[in-house]
């Protein structure tokens, strides 16, 4: 007669199979979750000071365009994006750097001397020299970059700061 704390060979085999399966399932399952969500956990810091050249090369009270590229590595692939904007120098200490990306649908705006406005080629939007909306569908003013001057050279901080409100 088998006493109650003895287990049969069959029950032992069942128990060991279940236990090993659980251990193996966990040992594989947890790494797999990490493997699948890994790219979502990597946040790339894209902040950088972009040099735009000597401050004296920017004319007073007239927007001067600039452009630069930033590269981004996604997985094994490098993508290069172009960005641009306008520097409006009121004085050597009062400098505004605007993004040229229309806040409506991201077309590039151009400075029009005769209209005294930035105009968007896509949907006839226009912005004043400081980036405020004059006409058209944009929901808010143009984004701007933080600026700094070091040893006579102008720098902007990428990425652009969205206009408040």
């Amino acid at each position: 007669m088998a006493s109650s704390h003895r287990i049969s060979r069959r029950d032992f085999a069942k128990f060991v199979t279940a236990a090993l399966s659980t251990v193996m399932g966990a040992a594989m399952g947890i790494p797999v979750i990490g493997y699948l969500i890994d790219p979502a956990l990597k946040v790339q810091s894209s902040e950088a000071w972009i040099p735009l050249g000597p401050l004296e090369s920017f004319p007073k009270d007239s927007p001067k365009s600039f452009s630069f590229t930033r590269s981004n590595i996604n997985g094994w692939e490098k993508t290069v994006n172009s960005y641009g904007g306008f520097v409006i120098k009121k004085s050597d200490s009062d400098i505004l750097a605007l993004s040229n990306r229309c806040t409506h649908l991201s077309c590039s705006v151009n400075w029009s001397e005769e209209e005294n406005a930035y105009t968007c080629p896509c949907h006839e939007a226009s912005f004043d020299m400081e980036g405020g909306v004059l006409d058209g569908p944009p929901p808010h003013a143009l984004d701007h970059f933080e600026t700094k001057v070091e040893e006579g050279a102008l720098f902007i901080l990428f990425p652009a700061i969205p206009h408040e409100g």
């Binding site: 790494p31 493997y35 890994d38």
Partner: peptide
């Protein structure tokens, strides 16, 4: 080739899988 290098070095537990 590059995607496999990425699996081996760039993704958590990619080397294991």
């Amino acid at each position: 080739y590059d995607s496999i290098q990425y699996i081996m070095d760039g993704v958590a537990f990619g080397w294991l899988i």
